[in-house]
Nucleic acid binder design. Sequence first.
DNA 1: TCTGGGGTCCTAGGACCC
DNA 2: TCTGGGGTCCTAGGACCC
Length: 346
Amino acid sequence: MSPWVLHVDLDQFLAAVEILRNPELAGKPVIVGGRGDPNERAVVSTASYEAREFGVRSGMALKIAMRKCPGAILLPVDRPVYEAASAQVMATLKAMPGAVVEVLGWDEAFVGVDTDDPVAYAHDIQAAVLAATSLHCSVGVGDTLVRAKVATDYGKPRGVYVLTADTWLDLLGDLPTDAVWGIGPRIRDRLADLGYATVRDLAAADDEALAAEFGPTTGPHIGRLGRGEGRRTVDDTPWVARAHGRETTYQQDLVGRDEVEPALRELADAVVEDLRREGRACMRVHLKIRFKPFFTVNRSRKLSEPTSDPAVIAATALALYDRLEDDRPVRLLGIRSEMVPPEGGY
DNA sequence: TCTGGGGTCCTAGGACCC
DNA sequence: TCTGGGGTCCTAGGACCC
C-alpha cells in the first residue's frame, strides 16, 4: 500500500448538469454563461464539447462565443442547481473507502488514498459518481497534488491518467512553463526572459536565481512546480472563508460619483448579507474598479474597528473611490470584505 | 473585438517604533 | 551632526485559480 493523490474533475460540468435536466440538449452545442443573453457583457462559464469544436472556450466573451458558434444553445448560469449537483458529487467522493477529500471548487476535488492500485480506485470513483449523479468525470493520478492535477487534462474526457516523478518530464519537459498548474502567463514570460522557456529548463533552474527574481518564498516554489514537486498529502480540513465579495459589471458604464455612490451601496448591502450569514464582521474593505479602457484598480482600507454595518462599508468604499480622483466611466465595481479571523485563526 | 464573479496568497515599500 | 538595524503594521498591487 502506498499513498496516492487523485484529482477528480467533472467533465463539462455546468453543461452536463443542464443536459441532465433537459436530455434534448445531449449532443448539441451548449453554452452556459451570464444571464443567457448573447448581447450582454458576460463570459462563457462552460461550453459543451460540441460547442468547443467551434473554438468556444470558458472565459470567452459571450458575444464572441455566439459569433463562433451561432447555432449554440445559450443558457443562463443557475448557481443553486450546480451547487446541489456539486454537493452530491462531493458526498459521493467522501463516501469512498479510505478517501480523504479536499474540495477545490464546484466541479473538482483532490482525493488522497492509500492503495496498491490507484487506477482501479480511480475507475471505482468514476463508477460511483456516475451511479449517484449520472455525471461523468476524469481522474488524474499522481504522487503529488500538482502531478495529479496536471494529469487530469490528459485523461479528459471520462478517462484516467497517471503522472509521477518518473514520467513528469517525458510528458511536459518540452512544453512552455505555463503547462504547469500554478504558473500563468505572467510568470511564464518572466521565466522565458530568464532563459527558462520549457518545463525542463525550469526543472533544472537553481533556487537562488529564482529567488532573486521572484522573492525568497515564491522563487523556490516556482522551481518546485517545474519539477512537479510540492504537497503530497490531501488535507480535508473544512474550509473557512477569509473574505466575501460582490462585484457587478454594468451593462452601461457608470459616469461620475453620483452614479457610483448608489451602486456601491447596493454592493455593500449584498456583502453584508454574506457577513450576517456567517456571523462574522468585516475588518478591511477592498474596492475594485474596472474603468472603461480595460484596466482595473484595487484599493483597500482597514477599518478602525470591525463592523457589519452596510453604511460604514459603503462609505469606506466611496472614500476609496474619491481618493482615486479619476472620473472616467466605470464598467465594473466590486466590494470585498475581509473578515475577522475565527478564534484560533485559520 | 471582447474580456464575469468568486476567491487566495505573496511582495514591495512606507510609516512608525525601539 | 549624523544616522544603525530590527521589528511590526499598513496599503498597493501582482499573480494565480475555478
